[in-house]
């Protein structure tokens, strides 16, 4: 039962990632990132209850405050001048179809060639749950490579970081000091990025940087 609850919640996290990949409007993408972070915080709270771990509960609070709230706020500020703006490039839907293929292959390869060969065990649920953070990680990478806009690429990076938190929570909760520092680091990076978002929203080839 525990494993099924975890798998259900983790798969919802992936659904949010797919929504972000298939979405062209920035505001909706940013908001879905907040939903994704809240879902991860919920998983952390559930495991905190199951394992009687205060650290996991504190982590859940930190995720909600720093990621679901603060990062969303900064990203929204970055696009405040034109909240209706959407991805400039064509083919967002085609990329989404390509992403589903990439995602399926990467997940199968990862599970059968890597995860099943490592002697890993989890305290709650079963080993196959670990596929979700890895899939989310690849989904974040794909979002970065498939889009040209600053906002979409930041969201890809935040998705990667969410994947790491999910992996840590499911496999072995790492010390809170490290986890909190990671959350602050990501927040710092998003703040710096949102400054750049105001200056440059799309990324094309620049002749000066060739070679």
């Amino acid at each position: 039962m525990n494993g099924e609850i975890l798998a259900l919640m983790s798969s919802l996290v992936l659904v949010t990632a797919f929504y972000i990949q298939g979405q062209a409007y920035y505001r909706a993408m940013v908001d879905m990132q907040a939903v994704q972070s809240i879902l991860i915080a919920t998983i952390s709270s559930y495991l905190a209850y199951e394992l009687h771990s205060l650290d996991l509960l504190l982590l859940a609070f930190s995720i909600v405050i720093l990621r679901a709230f603060a990062i969303t706020l900064f990203l929204r500020r970055g696009i405040r001048r034109s909240p209706w703006i959407r991805e400039g490039q064509r083919g967002v839907t085609s990329m989404f179809a390509l992403d589903l293929t990439f995602f399926s292959i990467a997940t199968l390869v990862l599970y059968y060639l890597v995860l099943s060969r490592l002697n890993l065990s989890v305290e709650v649920g079963n080993l196959s749950t670990l596929i979700f953070p890895f899939a989310l990680f690849f989904q974040g990478l794909f979002l970065i490579t498939s889009r040209r806009s600053t906002v979409a690429q930041i969201l890809g990076y935040v998705e990667e970081e969410n994947a790491l938190i999910l992996l840590g929570v499911l496999l072995v909760p790492i010390p809170l000091l490290v986890e909190a520092s990671v959350l602050l680091d990501v927040l710092g990076l998003v703040v710096v990025s949102s400054i750049l978002t105001l200056q440059k929203q799309f990324h094309e080839r620049v002749e000066e940087l060739m070679g």
């Binding site: 690429q153 990076y157 990667e160 710096v192 990025s193 750049l196 200056q199 440059k200 990324h203």
Partner: peptide, 13 residues
């Protein structure tokens, strides 16, 4: 600006 962005996103990823 482009170099800064590439630095941030590639290194962080």
């Amino acid at each position: 600006l482009e170099a800064t962005w590439r630095y941030i996103i590639l290194v962080s990823a």
